[in-house]
Design a protein around this nucleic acid. Structure first.
Lengths: 198, 198
DNA sequence: CGGTAATTTCAGTTATTATTGAAATTCAAG
DNA sequence: CTTGAATTTCAATAATAACTGAAATTACCG
């Protein structure tokens, strides 16, 4: 492997972190390389840059494609397949969220749903089912919320996140204002609004 | 292993999902068992219930303790150690978020921070560093947001999440109202508020 | 249609991780 | 302290997962 220093550090780090992230070293390094690369790479480029066998690169790319983390291109007058990683972090995040949800959460949600439909046959299972109900409720809340917010566009999402816990104050304010306008002068607020649709 | 049917399904499922979640079968099953159990269990109980060797259970419990996912108890007149999993899903979620962040995100954030302080020596690395800046910015936004919202209490968080993307409308409303009161009758809203502190 | 470059598959091998039983250590009660 | 139950460590083994090179397949060009 002969990569420039910063690229090399990044690639090596992704290789090492791979196991914690549930991918193998090869996949981690290939992804890292594609992510920082300024141009699309073909499988030979990748294999040579990282010192992996051609077949290993092929498997790694297949894996990354199954995660929707890389895109396939063709260059004019070149039969080889070129790969690129999407650049926008929000796009990457949405992809990761969707894939991890599908692989790591949905099966559990479905198992829990099934288990909650059963009639427990012994005392132990009555308690167990109640615990499963808790878990199901929580995961359901979380995933529905995620669905909901990921439908927003990225810039909106970014500003919401920058607000952090300030949204809480906003909700409190809403409740107060709602009380206020319900109680008395709704028309005052509307007439002062810069947005007449309000 | 001789567990009641629902418990068994839950335990088996956690064992199978373990590898996707970055834990091994033993750890997954032990956690599942503790989570649904109505009483604390000792290592022998666990080993017998799941058919694992005593030493395997010991290692699994050590792992779960390192994740802060189980608590250790002592029963009167019994030297053995008893284990329980916290019941509240929000507590569990906060623990998981904190631990996964520490293991799976912080090291990368720190690598990126270091890499951003370097002076790229070749053109390739200039581009690579820019990509790292993007990634760092995104992760930083996400983790700060998470820190921020996890500081809220669970019921607040739950209601915020139930609102889902409605918070977006709320932010828009805030901006309109802010425009309105800045422009004209701030005192009207305040005087109508049910909360005088506003 | 061949021919050939590119990619994928797969059986065999290597490397890593999980699991065990025996030995060592810890710990509390007498 | 000493004893023995409880827990942990650890070296050996079993089970999984990663990786390779050769063979097979695919896909494009003339």
């Amino acid at each position: 492997m002969n990569l420039p220093p910063l690229t090399q550090r990044f690639v090596m780090h992704f290789g090492e972190m791979g196991s914690r992230w549930g991918i193998n070293r090869t996949v981690g390094q290939i992804y890292a390389l594609l992510y920082v690369s300024s141009k699309p790479l073909n499988a030979d480029d990748i294999g040579e840059a990282l010192g992996f066998s051609r077949s290993n690169v092929s498997m790694g790319l297949k894996e990354l494609q199954s995660w929707n983390l890389v895109r396939l291109f063709h260059q004019p007058n070149d039969r080889r397949e070129y790969f690129q990683a999407p650049e926008d972090m929000w796009t990457i995040f949405r992809t990761l969220a969707a894939e991890r949800r599908k692989r790591e959460i949905d099966p559990t949600l479905s198992m829990l749903r099934d288990a909650l439909m059963e009639q427990p046959s012994v005392a132990e299972d009555i308690h167990a089912q109640e615990r499963m109900r808790q878990m199901h409720g929580f995961i359901d809340l979380m995933t529905n919320w995620l669905d909901d917010v990921l439908r927003m566009d990225s810039s909106t999402l970014a500003s919401l996140m920058q607000m952090g816990s300030k949204v809480k104050k906003l909700v409190e304010m809403k409740d107060r204002v709602k009380g206020a306008i319900t109680g008395k002068s709704r028309e005052v607020i509307n007439s002062n609004s810069s947005n007449p649709k309000a």
